[in-house]
């Protein structure tokens, strides 16, 4: 199953890579570029939400920090794009470390609140500072090459995806994060340092987001607090992850593709009813939490492996007992794997 997914992912990336050879329509390329960007935002959001169990409402803020740093470096300091993008990544790292240190020592609730407050504060800051252009936003030197941005976005998102794949699904890092999600105290008693791991995960999630923000700024050539720093960025990433399936890498991709397609069609045909979009977004989140707690991909996967299948439900023991058993076995497998990998690493 795992290697199948990676083969498919490589195939999808290759197909996307040759799409521009056949499609020269700028509009289609633009839609594809934005869809790829949203996939990137969704998978990075899932590192914290799905794998670690911490909800980051400041995801949009990191996107905005990356965008603004890149823009400021290019416009005010006349740096070339690549250098400015690197500066954006660096600033995002620093911000993630600074915001993560006090909040990630605590339980999930504090983190969600603090990151939300952070995103509001950053918004406010961008509005009052002169270097960011205040509410008028900033204009970047235009570089009108849709192909360049398409490949840049694809490259960044694909490498993020494969990096996350390796770290979260192959390397012990993902298991450690999952252990923290399941039982933080238990993970600590096995010799893990939850705070450090959580901060690492936070940085891992924030840095690609900042880079995407920087690319976005140069691509769109105009950023302002209302578009780049609005809550809508985090909100949409959250919908994509929850709807697609938390705690997997494929789930957010599926969620991003579906929600983004819906959004594009919605804006194309129903732009008079903008507010309806907010209602639908909220309803999708609330309903999928109630009816699809594992998300679309999680539900499909469970059904395929027969875990949540109807047949088993009818013949097997009552669902409650089954669930408890499943939970037990999951936990014991996790503990065993974790033990072996901590011993291998020689973690103190």
């Amino acid at each position: 199953m795992r290697s199948k997914i990676i083969t498919w992912s490589i195939l999808v990336v290759l197909v996307l890579g040759i799409v521009p050879l056949f499609v020269s329509d700028a509009f289609v390329l633009r839609i594809l570029t934005e869809a790829i960007m949203w996939i990137g935002l969704a998978i990075t959001f899932d590192v914290l939400a799905g794998y670690t169990g911490y909800l980051n409402f400041g995801h949009g803020a990191f996107f905005g920090i990356g965008a603004y740093t890149t823009a400021i470096m290019m416009v005010r300091a006349n740096w070339p794009f690549t250098l400015a993008l690197l500066a954006g990544a660096r600033v995002t790292t620093i911000c993630a470390l600074a915001a993560g240190f006090p909040t990630l020592r605590l339980r999930g609730a504090y983190f969600a609140i603090a990151t939300w407050a952070l995103s509001l504060a950053i918004q406010q800051l961008a509005l009052i500072l002169t270097i960011t252009g205040g509410p008028d936003g900033m204009r970047l030197p235009p570089f009108l090459n849709p192909l360049y941005f398409f490949y840049l976005m694809l490259g960044v998102v694909a490498s993020t995806f494969f990096l996350l794949w390796f770290l979260l699904e192959r390397a012990p890092f993902g298991l450690k994060l999952k252990a923290i999600r399941e039982d933080e105290l238990g993970a600590q008693s096995l010799g893990l340092n939850p705070t450090r791991l959580k901060i690492q995960a936070f940085v891992l999630s924030a840095v690609p987001t900042g880079i995407l923000g920087g690319i976005y700024a140069y691509w769109i050539t105009f950023i302002d607090p209302a578009s780049t720093l609005s809550d809508l960025v985090s909100d949409q990433a959250l919908v994509m992850v929850v709807f697609g399936g938390m705690g997997t890498l494929i789930g957010p991709v599926i969620g991003a593709v579906l929600i983004f397609s819906f959004k594009t069609i919605f804006w194309a045909y129903l732009s008079d009813f903008q507010l309806l979009y907010l209602i639908i977004l909220g309803a999708v989140i609330a309903l999928s939490v109630v009816f699809l707690p594992n998300g679309l991909w999680g539900t499909i996967r469970d059904r395929n492996s027969g875990r949540g299948g109807l047949k088993k439900k009818l013949t097997g023991p009552p669902p409650g007992i089954e669930a408890e058993k499943k939970d037990e076995t999951n936990k014991s497998i996790l503990t065993a794997e974790l033990k072996s990998c901590t011993q291998k690493d020689g973690v103190k």
Binding site: G108, D235, V242, L278, G282, A283, I285, A286, V289, V290
Partner: peptide, 11 residues
Amino acid sequence: LVFTFGLALMF
């Protein structure tokens, strides 16, 4: 958190 957040958006 996610559920009430969805409710908030909807409201």
